[in-house]
Every structure is written in structure tokens, then in C-alpha cells.
Amino acid sequence: MKNKILIALVFFYFFQFAIAYCLDYLFLKSKIYKSAVIFSSTDLLKEKDIIIMGGSNGLVSYETSLLENNIKKKVYNLSEDDTNIQIHLLQLKLLLKKEITPETIILNIGSLGSNLSRNVLRYLPILGKNHDFDMLFQKHQTFNYYMYRIFPILKWGMYNNDLLYPLAFNIIKSNRYKHRFNEDGEYTYPNLKSSILSDDYEFIELNNENETLNEFKILCLENNINLIIVNTPYYKKKIKWNNSDNKVKNYSTLYANKPEYFYDNLHLNKIGKKEYTKQFIYENFSLNK
């Protein structure tokens, strides 16, 4: 009896490894999240001249087709909502590992937090397969790191809302399901009739001497990537940089008096996105000046 239980336990232990491995494999073949896009669309990304990175601001602020038509370059938006500089740096390392070196990276910064943002879970399928991610995850979530390494199936159960079911949708929709982004990697907030804007003014301080940001800059420099650091427009929020080297394009107050351009205080809507993209092209690329 004891032997049977032992055999069953060993079987289930290896079985969960096999299931998790298959799920990881299917995930990295999909385009559900940007984390999967880096692995499944390597060739597509290699063709791009400009890659936009950032959190939700980066995701909703650029009209890719407008950029491409005006500057005659190929652009992809790799921004992911609810991520910060830690994830952006990880993305850059993953790109470089895949030998994806775009001409320019537009890095949109909303916060420089030292904690891992919630959506790090979207990278869990590469746990154990990528040293940079393993180091990052182990540093911030040591217990979870070992738990998911020993029982990889747990990450799929724990985040079934964000990983397992989107993967199931993807299989149902013949590999076409993408979580809040289109073929160009962008997402658009609608123009709301009733405003959800707050009139409370807020200052956000960011420090240019941030360790992770510096690492990002160095990696770009080493790989001949032109880096443009940007703060996208906010409504009634102003970003102030400490120790600024004046290389940051701070547009946080660009539309301070244009509430009609915003979906909420942090994100542009469809109109704002178009106007901002035009302004961004005008200020940063000389073709239409």
C-alpha cells in the first residue's frame, strides 16, 4: 500500500512537470501577452526599426500607423499595462538575447519603482528558461520562485485567470487572442462622454540616478540603440525629474488644459493619442519639421 502511494506521488510529481512544460510551450508560441510576443514573433520584431516600451502610458499614447507613415520606419509597441522599469529592463534583456536590436527604443516612464509590478506573472512561463528573469523573480519573490520551480503547475493554478484561461481562449480562437493590444501592439482608450477626470493636482518625482534605468541606458549604449526617454501627457499631474540630464522628453504637462484628450488622469483617449503622436513626431523626428 505504502509503495503504491509512493509510486502515485512520484507519478503525479512528474506529471505536473509535464503538464506545466506543455502549457509553458503553448504560451510561448502564442501572442497573448507581450512576454509571449518576444518569443513567438522574434522575426517580426527583428524587422522593426523602432520599439516602444513602457507601461500603460506607452501602450495607449502612440498611433503606430501615423508614426510609420510619417517617419518611414517600422514600429512595434511592446508596452504592457501595469509594468514598471524592472519589467522594461527585463524586456530589453530578452530582446537582446534574441538578437533583436532596433535602431531606436522609445522608453515611456510613469514610475521607477524598485518593486516588481503585478504583471510580472505574464513572464512566469519563462521561469527556469531565462537566467535574467530567474534572477529578477528570485530576488523579489524568493518563496514563490522556489515553489514554482519545484511545482511548476502551481503557477498555472495560481494565475489561472491571467495565464490558463487566456491560453484556452487563444487555443479556441486559433492563436489570434491578444490581451488588450492589436497587431501593432497598441491599445486605444475610447473617448468617453462623461469624464472620469479628477481635478486634484499632483506632482510625481522621478530620479534620473535610478540604478535600473542606468542599466537600461548602458545596455542601449553598448548595443548602439538610440534611446528616447519619454513622459507621456497626464491630466493635472506633473512629473519632475531629479538629477535630470535634460535628455528626458517630459510631456507630462503638454495637455494640462485639454481634458477632452484624456480617458482618465493618466491615459490619453483616441483623440489625445492622435494629437500626441503628431506632436511627438514633430518634436523628435526631423522629416516633417
Partner: peptide, 10 residues
């Protein structure tokens, strides 16, 4: 079923 349907994050 708990693994499939559980809402651990919430």
C-alpha cells in the same frame, strides 16, 4: 477543480 476554477489572486 480548485486548480482550474479557484480564484487565488482575488
Amino acid at each position: 477543480l480548485i486548480f482550474l476554477l479557484g480564484s487565488f489572486e482575488n
